[in-house]
C-alpha cells in the first residue's frame, strides 16, 4: 500500500497534527507513528524527502545529544571532575580523565585547570536515557575559552547561524574579523581585537 502525504512539504505543523498516512514512511525526529498515521509531536517545519519524514524544531530549550559540540560553563568542582552547565535542564559531567592528560593527585585543587564560571568548548560523549551527560575537552578545537564575550541564542537556530557547511559563519567571521565559536546549545563565543566588530558580530548572529 502506498502512503499518502497529508500536508504540504515545508509547512508548519502543530502537535497532534496528522502529516501522513501509510506504513511505508521512514520517520526522523519530531514525528511518531500511531497505527496507520504519522503524527507531529511538536511544533515545527515538516520535511518530506521521498519516504523520509522529519520535523525541524523551531523552538524549545536545548536537549543534550551525543556528539554535539557545546559551550558550557563550569558550575561546580567535584572530587574527580567538573559539573558543566549546558543551558539545558541537564548539567554535564566533565571527568578528570576526559579533560587532562597529566597525572593529578587525588584531592588536589582542580581550579588550576578549570575554575568556576570558566566557559569551555566541549563535546558530548554520552547521554544516558536518564539524561546523565558526559562531556570531554580532549579533541580538536575543544578547550577553555579565554576572554571574548558570550551570547546566547535560540539553540534551534544554530544550524542556520552556521549555514551550509559553515558558509554563514565564515561570512560573519570574514566580514568582522572576529573569532567565533558556536555551540550546538545556543551559546556563542565571540572574540576580536576590535570591540566594535565584536558588536557587529553579536548582532549578525542574533539576527540570522
Amino acid at each position: 500500500m502506498m502512503g499518502k502525504q497529508l500536508v504540504k512539504d515545508k509547512s508548519i505543523v502543530v502537535p497532534g497534527e496528522v502529516v501522513a498516512e501509510g506504513r511505508d514512511f521512514i520517520l526522523g525526529p519530531g514525528v511518531r507513528r500511531e497505527g496507520n498515521q504519522i503524527v507531529a509531536s511538536r511544533v515545527g517545519l515538516i520535511h518530506f524527502e521521498g519516504k523520509f519524514i522529519r520535523l525541524i524544531a523551531l523552538s524549545g530549550r536545548y536537549i543534550p545529544r551525543k556528539d554535539d559540540v557545546i559551550i558550557g560553563r563550569i558550575k561546580e568542582i567535584l572530587i574527580n571532575g567538573w559539573l558543566v552547565d549546558t543551558e539545558s535542564a541537564y548539567p554535564a559531567m566533565l571527568n578528570l580523565r576526559d579533560a587532562v592528560t597529566e597525572y593529578v593527585a587525588k584531592g588536589s585543587d582542580l581550579t588550576r585547570f578549570f575554575d568556576f564560571n570558566d566557559y569551555i568548548v566541549c563535546k558530548i560523549i554520552n547521554v544516558t536515557p536518564q539524561m546523565f551527560v558526559d562531556v570531554t575537552t580532549k579533541g580538536p578545537g575543544l578547550k577553555k575559552l579565554v576572554g571574548g564575550r558570550i551570547i546566547k541564542v535560540n539553540p534551534n537556530k544554530v544550524s542556520r547561524i552556521i549555514g551550509k557547511k559553515g558558509s554563514m559563519l565564515n561570512m560573519i567571521k570574514q566580514a568582522t574579523g572576529c573569532n567565533i565559536i558556536v555551540g550546538q546549545n545556543g551559546v556563542i563565543w565571540i572574540k576580536s581585537t576590535d570591540p566594535k566588530m565584536e558588536l557587529v558580530a553579536v548582532n549578525a548572529n542574533k539576527d540570522s
Binding site: K10, I12, E17, L45, L58
Partner: peptide, 21 residues
C-alpha cells in the same frame, strides 16, 4: 483558533530551506 495562532507564529520560518550545519 489555537492551531491557526500557532501556525501564524511560525509562518516566517517557512522560507528556511534544508539547513544542516
Amino acid at each position: 483558533v489555537q492551531k491557526k495562532a500557532l501556525k501564524r507564529r511560525y509562518e516566517k520560518y517557512k522560507s528556511i530551506g534544508n539547513v544542516e550545519g
